[in-house]
Amino acid sequence: MVRFENVGMRYGLGPEILRDISFTLEPGSFHLLNGPSGAGKTSLLKLIYLAERPSRGAISMFGREIAATPREELPSLRRRIGVVFQDFRLLDHLTVFENVSLPRRVMGEFESGYRAEVEELLSWVGLGNRLNAKPPTLSGGEKQRVAIARAVVAKPELLLADEPTGNVDPEIGGRIMRLFIELNRLGTSVLIATHDQRIMERLPATRIFQLIDGRVTTAQSAKDLVLAEAMRA
């Protein structure tokens, strides 16, 4: 589904943020992306959701070589990806309902076709009574849930989340993780960038990408990761 081969990335003429990144995300897989702040997790996610271009190397998404894909065909690839941005990136002048339904709207669907699904999804994330609220009136946790609902509303094949449980209490965090696991069971590949230890402990058998100094290493589980870090120390 996603394949990176020796990918490097730099912003402008600055130093290389990511170096020799190679990995594969298989359909239906569940991965965590771990690493300290500033390690390049967000930059790596940007490459995957096609917001940035690599400086070198090759990226393949859904069987298409990105470098050889015409720009006008990229929106159809982006629609197969759901993204939970770290800073939410909600549109303040739109209601919760309108923010969440935006991906369906840009696909050209009419409101009557997705209204019930969006309402159900918002009820599921505990925002069933805030459909008409605007983002500035929401708490950090509520904004995060709106951002998650927007990312999953179009049933993406790949879900990317940048610190999705950073601003929510443990109970809501647990519900969000259960939503991701449920989506994964239904066939969606999930990649979560996090340094939340609770998530890694809750998903003991999950493959973890460790990003340090712009390079990726792979661990088979949170336990392996802890062992590897202990050995490095």
């Binding site: 929106p75 159809s76 840009v106």
Partner: peptide, 15 residues
Amino acid sequence: EIVEVVHMIGARDVF
């Protein structure tokens, strides 16, 4: 910001 967000969630330029 609006242009960027809508672009990232898959909107075509013409839309």
